[in-house]
Amino acid sequence: MSMSRETCINILLALLLLAVPVAAAELGEPFYVTLATRVAILALAAVGLNIALGLGGLVSFGHAAFFGIGGYVAGILASHAFEMSPLVFGIEGTTSMPVIWLTAIMIAGLVALPIGAISLRTTGVYFIMITLAFAQMIYYFAESWPTYGGADGLSIIMRNQFPGVNTARPLPYFLICYCLLIAGLGLYWLLQGSRFGLALQTARQNAIRLSSVGIAPFGIRLTAFVISAMVVGLAGALFADLNKFVSPSMLSWHMSGELIVLIILGGKGRLFGPVAGAAVYVLFEFALGGLTERWQFFLGLVLLGVVLFARGGLLGLLAGKARHD
């Protein structure tokens, strides 16, 4: 059985994202490893958003909320562990990455549940704006709440720990993030082909038809929204550990916009779209950011060009049209 062109491109992308940092580490260029880690983490966040946006057609303009929540979970737990002061109810802080990840995933999911339940009562432009408003609410809360740094943000003194791995070095940390990205892609792939995923995609294409076969779209969409938020929350925790810093800018509406941009640059609703998009975005930022401070001007032009003339994104150009778009 021959593989489709898109599968070949996907495998190539996955190998490339692994090979470049490994080679860079061999050559003693840790900067490129950090760059690749950034790609992997942003791609994971975009894979999470793609569950809601690509499969479910839910244009959430507020997923930065979950990204930032994940980041603050990492920052807050680490700072309590560092200062050896308990959080509320005598819970201790921790520097263990697995514990932090689980906490970030759970809290992002718990916050997403009421946000999704209220937002999904609306559709279309109202949905876009109410998700934006919820994210702003959390943004302003983080900005004006002084305990964890307020607008100045919160530093993570030392990168958190993973059993048996020296996370302070760039390559091992990249490999952790890479494995989680592959796991995230695996989740997306499983969801896409599952009964749940088929119902979700039907909810996007024709909600009335879904209802008429006896499945209420609301529950399906809400589940997708929460799963999507959990993956983005995990990515946020990784991002905070990468930068050793978390601030309200992770919660800002620019961040929400960027996450959507990553998906669109790569190709909406495709397995590896977020990976391609994140790679293009980070490379673009790096290449142009070195040449001119005004790189966002050119990013804007490119984005405008993609939206107006190349709607399939990078994978659309390379691998042809997606099915059922």
Binding site: F61, V125, I128, I264, Q296, L304, V307, R311
Partner: peptide
Amino acid sequence: HLDQVLATFALILILS
């Protein structure tokens, strides 16, 4: 709406 959001988001970047 998604295309509109993205294109006008791009406009913000360009105009700012």
